[in-house]
């Protein structure tokens, strides 16, 4: 554990996925080493969410292999898949909090369901710890609808952290949030890696976020990965789509 050494946390090789005649992923290769944050950039509708959903087994790829923590997701049986999912945290684009439960119940739910024999005191302590780490301890009795979008996002991350995952997948963590809240979420993602030693894929179209949280940055263009080095290396590439992506975010600034 720790550092980019050791076997990688996530390895994708030649992953393809089509919906009818729409070819979303056309041979995606991606490596995520232990304790590093890899950012995947891309404009809306390029299949970034499809990518994370195939990694966690919500969607099946048409071809290719996906290894997560050494196990091939495409060949796992349901029970083995569940054992692996406990080690993966997933932060949804729209948070996907259970809207009939309080914040405390939301965060406790994965723990109670997966480890039903956990004593109540320990459940309460771990819920407190998870909410503390996202700075929302006082929101415990509230309902999801009473929270702002940024707070919901943070509860979603706390819920993903309760099972102490080794891998985190963030789907558009800053989408639809104001710049200040985006900054807080970015800090949180960096802090989660520090405190939990997680390996993460961060899906986003927000360049500021990518620069802040990403150890390495890749871009999903027409179903394939471009780049995969540092932020600056990616935008030094002479690729029209990469350049226009940059130009829109930092107007009239020449990429380094």
């Amino acid at each position: 554990m720790g550092g980019p050494s050791g076997d990688p946390a996530i390895v994708l090789r030649g992953v393809t996925k089509s919906f009818g005649s729409l070819h979303v992923l056309r041979g995606v290769d991606l490596d995520v080493h232990r304790s590093e944050n890899v950012v995947v950039l891309g404009k809306s509708g390029t299949g970034k969410s499809v990518l994370t959903k195939t990694i966690v087994g919500l969607l099946k790829p048409d071809e290719g292999t996906i290894h997560v923590l050494g196990q091939d997701v495409t060949t796992l049986r349901p029970r083995e898949m569940d054992a692996l999912r406990v080690r993966i945290g997933y932060s949804f684009q729209h948070s996907a909090l259970y809207d009939s439960m309080t914040i405390a119940e939301n965060v406790a739910f994965p723990l109670i369901m997966n480890e039903p024999k956990t004593p109540r005191g320990e459940v309460a302590d771990r819920v407190d710890a998870a909410l503390e780490s996202v700075g929302l301890l006082n929101a415990k009795p509230q309902m999801p609808a009473e929270l702002s979008g940024g707070q919901q996002k943070r509860v979603g991350i706390a819920r993903a952290l309760i099972l102490e995952p080794e891998v985190m997948l963030y789907d558009e963590p800053t989408a639809g949030l104001d710049p200040l809240t985006c900054g807080e979420i970015n800090d949180l993602i960096v802090q989660v890696r520090e405190s939990h030693q997680t390996s993460a894929i961060v899906i986003t179209h927000d360049l500021a976020s990518a620069k802040h949280v990403g150890d390495r940055v890749a871009m999903l263009i027409e179903g394939q990965m471009i780049g995969g080095g540092t932020f600056d290396e990616l935008f030094a590439l002479d690729h029209p789509q990469v350049r226009s992506f940059y130009a829109y975010n930092f107007t009239d600034q020449d990429p380094t």
């Binding site: 959903k53 966690v56 919500l58 569940d82 054992a83 999912r85 406990v86 993966i88 997933y90 949804f92 996907a96 909090l97 259970y98 739910f109 994965p110 369901m113 997966n114 819920r159 099972l163």
Partner: peptide, 8 residues
Amino acid sequence: DAMEVSAI
């Protein structure tokens, strides 16, 4: 989906 990825 959130339940499914939490192994529920």
